[in-house]
């Protein structure tokens, strides 16, 4: 058990070192990317969404969490393939790789959250006791990401198309989620389509905490916790089902 933690920590540390190796700006990229997008969206959409109060903060409280989701999935989806050398030669439980992948992204996200807090304060974030709830909420979100990631990563070992398909679909998912627009811009009769997207509920939650300054509703917590649990169950099941042939397909 103790060695398990050691191993996951060591893998996470390696991932973090590799993540920004050979790049000059290093970890600042995890800051610059959302800020770059933010400036585009503020420039393009602030007129269209002028009625949204404090649009930059609204967009930002969605964007950075989208970034976390997207980076998390990308890190996990290739976690078996990029560790093929290890998996084929040393007996290491397969689940260590996706777990250390989500830790990697969680740590780099938490680090980027420090400067982002200042950026959000600049755009009018009101910090209060409820803001701290973002951390347990992130834990639920991480479980959701890990669950989805486990499924995709396991499939990706057999069909490399999965990660390519993901790269193609993720921008669509971005616009399908209320990140740079509000749900109120969607006509009432089509709102149910938006609500089919699990991410809808997670962004609703992060917005309540950081944009509205209140705790997410019990309803929202119930839905997101259920989504995370279901995603984890499917992910663990898929990994279990697909693991017998994994070594020979890596």
């Amino acid at each position: 058990m103790k060695n398990t933690i050691d191993t996951v920590i060591n893998l996470t540390r390696r991932n973090l070192k590799l993540k920004y190796k050979n790049s000059i700006l290093g970890y600042f990229w995890s800051l610059l990317t959302p800020l770059f997008y933010l400036s585009i969206f503020v420039f393009v959409f602030s007129r269209a969404f002028g009625s949204v109060e404090n649009y930059p903060l609204y967009a930002l409280t969605g964007l950075i969490f989208w970034q976390f989701f997207n980076n998390g999935i990308n890190q996990i989806i290739n976690s078996f393939i990029s560790n093929a050398g290890i998996i084929k030669t040393i007996f290491v439980p397969l689940k260590f790789f996706p777990i250390s992948a989500i830790y990697t992204e969680l740590i780099s996200f938490l680090l980027s959250l420090i400067p982002f807090t200042f950026v959000m304060l600049f755009f009018g974030l009101q910090l209060n006791a409820q803001s701290l709830f973002i951390f347990p909420y992130l834990a639920i979100f991480s479980f959701f990401i890990l669950g989805i990631g486990l499924t995709l990563a396991s499939l990706n070992v057999y069909l490399r198309d999965v990660s390519i398909l993901w790269n193609t679909l993720s921008p669509a998912l971005f616009y399908f989620s209320p990140i740079v627009y509000t749900a109120s811009f969607v006509p009432q009769e089509y709102l149910w389509i938006l609500k089919l997207n699990p991410l809808y509920y997670f962004f609703e939650g992060t917005r309540s905490i950081l944009y509205h300054g209140v705790l997410p509703s019990l309803m929202n917590l119930g839905i997101t916790a259920t989504l995370a649990t279901v995603a984890m169950i499917i992910g663990v099941f898929t990994l279990k089902k697909l693991s017998p042939g994994m070594v020979s397909n890596l």
């Binding site: 390696r14 070192k17 290890i86 030669t89 040393i90």
Partner: peptide, 8 residues
């Protein structure tokens, strides 16, 4: 070299 990370 198996399991080694070239960058580290």
């Amino acid at each position: 070299g198996a399991g080694m990370e070239m960058e580290l």
